[in-house]
Design a protein around this nucleic acid. Structure first.
Lengths: 336, 336
DNA sequence: CTGTTAGCGCATTCAG
DNA sequence: CTGAATGCGCTAACAG
């Protein structure tokens, strides 16, 4: 049923070694022989068996990518960056979703390793000791992508989430705002949620603005939680003049909550966030946000991984990509 | 360096066959022996080599999934459905993105086949003869997912796009609208773009409404193109009273274009679309839309594939899942 | 219940 | 430039 390298050899009147050579683009084959082999391949419809090849060569030219949540557009964008660079270097990628669940992450890492991937890209999510344990038993390079290892033991590519938040809030302060509320993500997540909260605090502190506990609400990154969180700020006695949301979705929720109260954005309250997803352009007013270079994070981390896999020297094993605040129409000057 | 089944056998004082048996949960092993083997495995940190296993057993318990565009949330949702069912049946999945490019789709199908996947799920996009040719050489089952084969040669799971569009437009007609414009996707795409246009036409026809050529604009499924298309309808002499958009994004673009002209939705113009993405809840007014069961399409197609892979009988190889019109606030009664 | 023996399809020495 | 031989790590009969 399945045609093997051996069948091709017979058909072409050469040895299987020769067939193997032409399939692998080994230059030591006479052009004429090469031609004969190609013809035999076409005639028989031969398709190399990557599994057998992997076993014989101990390389699969495949890298495993674990993605926390495929339906999160940020991660999808990272994945695109990974894909593009992987293709460029002729690696295939196996994308595995882990539903943001740690146990599934570990399981997925292990099946990827069983499949003998040549390298591993771990995207998003916290990196615990258990993760590191799994990575350690891998005999292949691992790079973290859109997340970091606090102890700097594992190569990673990410942005500085604390600084991104800081810059967002500072933009607000630059507009003259002082009553700045924050709709945060979960503070349990050290690399993103907590870091952004830290950035918010640092910006306030630096401007000499005392932090008000009732000006911080924790959401779950989603639209609805933005509405809900904003609801708590929309009381006459504690109206903020600006709001910093940890994600675009929550920011859009906040904007709608504000508008539903008959107030205007940015006339009455300014809003800024971190993400700069496509949705930022799809709201009225358009959303000012700190842009994270998700595609680049993917691309750079994949590039780094290729170097590691080829045992090439790398200058930096922990890279931080720059972010950028994109001013649109949701944030403006504070009222006099 | 790498520890093999043979090392485990020696460590446990049994033969490699026995180790293989315990690893594969073969019941014919004395509990005591099993225990010894497990201990040896732990001690050595043995990890089965899926590549060798695949070569020996000619099965990889892996299915390949080609996805047109990973950053499209509809497809991401389908992928989630696939994932969940795959996990349930202990299959791994290899997700490959194809950038909506036919050449890349073909290439990806082939590398997946080289990797000896046990089955293939082809998501979205048109199915050409070239695709079929590639599928034919596969010795494994293939199912189309969120797309269909016009000739019904290949098993598929999808919704009836024509009927979905028809129902959307009919909803508008039910509200008393007669001047109904359409913002279509590309008419080149038979399974989605063209089908939705057909549904629009059929609904008008049935209601005895003559089709107006200047009431149809083709967009590219994106927000900006919705704005642009709507712009053409917003001329005094040909204002439609309702708009049917082929996607949520274009619908939202249309809504904003209408609002920017100082008109109201649905007061002046009603809008309805197909998709019912998360964004439908994230606009003001919230968007009425025909919901497509993307997750289910993924789940059902994966389930179908498992049956095919196990050579179980299947009652239906072409399944159409029901859609549903979700009424929100963007579509209302026509003005008297 | 357990061990022995062949391959799976291919890359890779090593000769020639 | 080409062929013969070996083994990658494991499963699957086949014996016992």
């Amino acid at each position: 049923m399945t045609v093997t390298i051996y069948d091709v050899a017979r058909e072409a009147g050469v040895s299987m070694a020769t067939v193997s050579r032409v399939v692998n683009n080994n230059p030591n084959v006479k052009p004429q022989t090469r031609k004969k082999v190609y013809e035999a391949i076409d005639r028989l419809g031969y398709r190399p068996n990557a599994v057998a090849r992997g076993l014989a060569s101990k390389k699969t030219t495949t890298v495993g990518v674990v993605i926390p949540d495929i339906s999160n557009s940020n991660f999808a964008e990272v994945a695109r960056g990974i894909e593009d660079i992987a293709n460029m270097y002729h690696y295939n990628i196996i994308l595995c979703s882990a539903d943001k669940r740690k146990d599934k992450e570990i399981r997925v890492i292990n099946t990827l390793l069983e499949k003998q991937v040549d390298g591993l890209l771990f995207m998003g999510g916290a990196v615990t000791d258990e993760h590191k344990q799994a990575f350690k038993t891998a005999n292949v390079p691992v790079v973290l992508c859109a997340t970091t290892d606090e102890q700097n033991e594992i190569p990673s590519v990410d942005i500085d989430h604390e600084a991104a938040a800081y810059d967002a809030v500072k933009t607000l302060i630059g507009h003259g705002h002082r009553d700045i509320a924050m709709i945060s993500g979960t503070l349990q997540d050290p690399s993103v949620g907590y870091a952004r909260y830290q950035g918010y605090k640092r910006a306030l502190q630096e401007a000499g603005i005392p932090e008000r506990e009732d000006f911080v609400r924790v959401g779950n990154y989603r639209y609805e939680s933005g509405i809900e969180a904003m609801g708590h700020f929309l009381e006459p006695d504690k109206l903020p003049s600006a709001v910093f949301a940890a994600t675009d979705e929550m920011a859009i929720g906040a904007i709608h909550a504000i508008q539903d109260k008959g107030l205007s954005v940015p006339g009455d309250i300014s809003v800024i966030s971190v993400d700069n997803s496509r949705m930022a352009e799809m709201v009225r007013p358009t959303l000012s946000a700190v842009a994270q270079p998700m595609y680049d994070i993917g691309a750079v981390s994949m590039r780094l991984l290729t170097k590691l896999m080829k045992k090439e020297p790398v200058e930096q094993s922990k890279v931080i990509l720059p972010h950028d605040v994109v001013k649109r129409n949701s944030a403006g000057a504070a009222q006099a």
